[in-house]
Amino acid sequence: MIRQFGWGEFLFLLEGARWTIVLSLLAFTFGGILGLAIALGRTSKWKSLRILTATYIQIFQGTPLLVQLFFVYFGLPLLGFKVDVWVALTIGLSLHTSAFLGEIWRGSIQAVPDGQGEAARALGIGYMHRMVDVVLPQAFRIGLPATISFLVNLIKGTALAALLGLTELTRSGQLMANITFQPLQVYGAVAVIYFFICLPLTYCSSRIERRLNAAR
């Protein structure tokens, strides 16, 4: 007897959606920390550091996320690390995130008027406090809409975890489609769940963007 796609099956998909969100948050947190370092390196006064971080960004923006994930998942074991799929995906997605957020935040740091940093320097404020207290808070505001829309891209990107076998939302959909033989309904439901996770963020991002533009 073939199972029908009903309420219980939908709950199974929601169960998977939980891991999609957990994975996105993990990657966003670690990627955000590393991304801040990348952004600071990208705007540093040392040329070698700027070139290094620019290359890092180029590599991650110029290759598919899928290949990056495969590389981490199949490559790390060769270096002697035993990684399970969660660790590999968190590392892969975090590195990917750090490159994109690094580039977004580089732009927002550079969009803060030079006078702000110069005034801080004239007051004798050191690099650390100049960044943390003067430049970054202003850059944060400017970069917020792009950061949120990247978060949407990241959530969509975690769907690739299905291809490495982690049972998040898309993989749950694959399993459920195989059990029920109703791929149209199942993938439709999966798409709807993604839609309702991402839509509030997209809405938020465009609202903030409009408000920032109105202020200018």
């Binding site: 898309t170 791929p183 199942v186 999966v190 798409a191």
Partner: peptide, 17 residues
């Protein structure tokens, strides 16, 4: 607001229905 992977699954596995 949906992943392209889900879109292609929808087209490839869902449309034959």
């Amino acid at each position: 607001n949906t992943p392209i992977l889900v879109q292609v699954f929808f087209v490839f596995f869902g449309m034959p229905a």
